[in-house]
């Protein structure tokens, strides 16, 4: 089974799925906190329009989980705020 890493845990996915689809299939509904309210967000529009599903992939913040295709061994982390706070 193909897996990528999300916040240190293995997420199994089927090749062809996006990171967002794989996370939802694994029971995750959110992988970001907002800049102002610090509330959790996940998929909303699902097609790259709304930017709610932003996530950090391989250290690059602000990636749309609904668009980035899952690949074995990727490192995905929850994005807090702008994703740049720890730079």
């Amino acid at each position: 089974m193909s897996t990528f890493e999300f916040d240190g845990a293995g997420i199994e996915f089927r090749p062809g799925q996006t990171i967002g689809a794989a996370l939802v299939a694994a029971g995750q509904v959110s992988w970001r906190t907002t800049r102002v309210g610090g509330v959790r967000r996940g998929l909303f529009c699902g097609i790259g329009i709304c930017f709610d599903c932003l996530v950090t992939v391989e250290g690059e913040p602000n990636q749309r989980a609904c668009l980035v295709v899952a690949e074995p061994g990727l490192t995905v982390t929850t994005q807090e705020g702008t994703g740049h706070e720890h730079d």
Binding site: R14, Q17, T18, G20, G42, L43, F44, C45, G46, I47
Partner: peptide
């Protein structure tokens, strides 16, 4: 709230992700 989506978002998740 996470889990609230657009209708098209639900459909895209199913059509492209099988989820």
């Amino acid at each position: 709230l996470p889990g609230v989506m657009t209708v098209g978002g639900l459909q895209a998740l199913l059509k492209a992700g099988g989820v």
